[in-house]
Computed example of a mutant assay.
Amino acid sequence: MVNNILIIGITGNGKSALASLLANNNEFKESGGGISKTDRFQVSKEPFEWKGKQYRLVDNIGFGDTGNISEEEIFLEIGEGIHAAKEGINQILFVFKGRFGPEQVEAFKKFKTFISESGITKFTTLVRTKFEEFRDPKKCEEDRQSLLSEDNKDLREIIDSCNGIIYINNPPIPEIDEDEADSDDEKEINEITRKKEVSRKIVLDHLAEKCQEPYKFGK
Results as ranks from 00 to 15, higher is better:
residue 2 V to W: 05
residue 3 N to K: 13
residue 7 I to M: 07
residue 9 G to C: 03
residue 10 I to N: 08
residue 10 I to Y: 01
residue 12 G to F: 01
residue 17 A to C: 08
residue 18 L to G: 06
residue 21 L to R: 03
residue 21 L to G: 02
residue 22 L to S: 02
residue 22 L to P: 00
residue 24 N to Y: 14
residue 25 N to D: 14
residue 35 I to K: 10
residue 41 F to Y: 12
residue 41 F to H: 03
residue 45 K to C: 03
residue 45 K to D: 12
residue 47 P to L: 07
residue 53 K to G: 09
residue 54 Q to S: 11
residue 56 R to G: 06
residue 57 L to F: 02
residue 57 L to N: 01
residue 58 V to E: 02
residue 58 V to S: 00
residue 59 D to F: 01
residue 60 N to G: 05
residue 67 G to R: 03
residue 69 I to K: 15
residue 72 E to I: 10
residue 75 F to E: 07
residue 75 F to R: 02
residue 75 F to D: 05
residue 76 L to N: 15
residue 77 E to R: 07
residue 79 G to N: 14
residue 79 G to P: 07
residue 83 H to T: 15
residue 83 H to M: 15
residue 85 A to M: 03
residue 85 A to Q: 00
residue 87 E to Q: 15
residue 88 G to P: 10
residue 88 G to F: 04
residue 93 L to M: 04
residue 97 K to E: 14
residue 99 R to Y: 12
residue 99 R to D: 15
residue 99 R to K: 10
residue 101 G to R: 09
residue 104 Q to V: 09
residue 104 Q to L: 08
residue 115 I to T: 03
residue 116 S to Y: 07
residue 118 S to R: 08
residue 118 S to L: 12
residue 121 T to G: 06
residue 122 K to Y: 13
residue 124 T to W: 00
residue 125 T to L: 05
residue 128 R to A: 04
residue 129 T to S: 08
residue 129 T to R: 01
residue 133 E to P: 05
residue 135 R to Y: 10
residue 136 D to A: 05
residue 138 K to W: 12
residue 139 K to F: 05
residue 139 K to E: 14
residue 141 E to K: 15
residue 144 R to F: 12
residue 148 L to E: 11
residue 149 S to V: 03
residue 149 S to D: 11
residue 149 S to C: 05
residue 152 N to S: 12
residue 152 N to I: 10
residue 153 K to R: 14
residue 153 K to S: 12
residue 153 K to Q: 14
residue 154 D to I: 05
residue 155 L to P: 06
residue 158 I to H: 04
residue 159 I to A: 01
residue 159 I to V: 13
residue 162 C to D: 02
residue 166 I to P: 01
residue 166 I to A: 09
residue 167 Y to N: 00
residue 167 Y to P: 01
residue 168 I to Q: 01
residue 168 I to Y: 05
residue 169 N to R: 14
residue 170 N to C: 08
residue 171 P to W: 06
residue 176 I to K: 03
residue 178 E to Q: 10
residue 179 D to S: 09
residue 180 E to R: 01
residue 181 A to H: 09
residue 181 A to S: 08
residue 184 D to W: 11
residue 188 E to Q: 15
residue 188 E to P: 09
residue 189 I to S: 01
residue 189 I to L: 03
residue 190 N to Q: 13
residue 191 E to Q: 08
residue 192 I to N: 04
residue 195 K to N: 15
residue 197 E to Q: 14
residue 198 V to C: 07
residue 204 L to K: 00
residue 205 D to C: 06
residue 206 H to G: 07
residue 207 L to S: 00
residue 207 L to Y: 00
residue 207 L to I: 06
residue 209 E to D: 14
residue 211 C to I: 07
residue 211 C to Y: 12
residue 212 Q to I: 11
residue 212 Q to R: 13
residue 213 E to P: 02
residue 214 P to V: 04
residue 216 K to V: 12
residue 219 K to P: 11
